[in-house]
C-alpha cells in the first residue's frame, strides 16, 4: 500500500455527537471504496467498549482498528479531524486515523511512518489546525516518510 493517506480518504468536520459517530464518519471512505465492510466499523467500536481507550495513542489522537478479518478487503488508512473534539472514554480526540489491516504485516511500513510522525506532538496539532484536506495532505507529504 501507499505510505501515505490519499486525500480522498481525508475529511474535516466541526463536531460529532459521540466517538461512535466519529469512527463511522472516519471510516466512510474505506467503506465506500470497498476496503472494509460495515462489520469492521462495528468491530472497532466493540473493541473500545471491550478493551478501553488505549487506541488514544497520543493527546488528541486515536487509531481506531480491529483484528484483521474477513471484514477487511484491502489494507488502508483514512483520516478525520473533528474540530471541536469528541470524547472517547474520558479522552478528547480531534484526530482519528482508521487502520484497516487485511493481515498482521501488510500495514507495518505505514505504521512505522505513522509512529515516527506521532512521536512529534506538534505534527498532530498542525494537522488538527488545518481547515482544508489539501493542507493536511501537504503536511503528511512533507513529514510522513
Amino acid at each position: 500500500m501507499a505510505q501515505n493517506i490519499p486525500q480522498s480518504h481525508m475529511q474535516i468536520i466541526e463536531n460529532a455527537s459521540n466517538y461512535e459517530e466519529a469512527i463511522q464518519i472516519a471510516s466512510k471512505p474505506l467503506l465506500e471504496n470497498d476496503y472494509i465492510t460495515k462489520d469492521y466499523i462495528q468491530a472497532m467500536i466493540d473493541s473500545v467498549e471491550e478493551h478501553g481507550p488505549y487506541i488514544v495513542l497520543a493527546d488528541d489522537f486515536a487509531l481506531p482498528h480491529a483484528r484483521p478479518s474477513e471484514a477487511v478487503k484491502k489494507t488502508g488508512l483514512s483520516l478525520l479531524t473533528v474540530k471541536d473534539g469528541v470524547d472517547l472514554k474520558g479522552n478528547t480526540v480531534k484526530l482519528f486515523v482508521v487502520l484497516a489491516a487485511k493481515d498482521s504485516t501488510s500495514h507495518n511500513e505505514a505504521l512505522q511512518s505513522l509512529a515516527e510522525f506521532l512521536m512529534d506532538k506538534q505534527n498532530i496539532q498542525d494537522v488538527i489546525a488545518c481547515d482544508r484536506v489539501q493542507d493536511i495532505k501537504k503536511i503528511l507529504d512533507e513529514r510522513w516518510n
Binding site: 473493541s47 471491550e50 482498528h65 489491516a101 505504521l111 509512529a115
Partner: peptide, 19 residues
C-alpha cells in the same frame, strides 16, 4: 501488548525501540 497485536502494539513497539 494490545488487544489484537497489530495496530496499537506495533506503535508501542516502535516507541519503545526509539526510547
Amino acid at each position: 501488548v494490545c488487544g489484537f497485536g497489530v495496530g496499537s502494539s506495533m506503535i508501542l513497539k516502535l516507541t519503545i525501540q526509539k526510547a
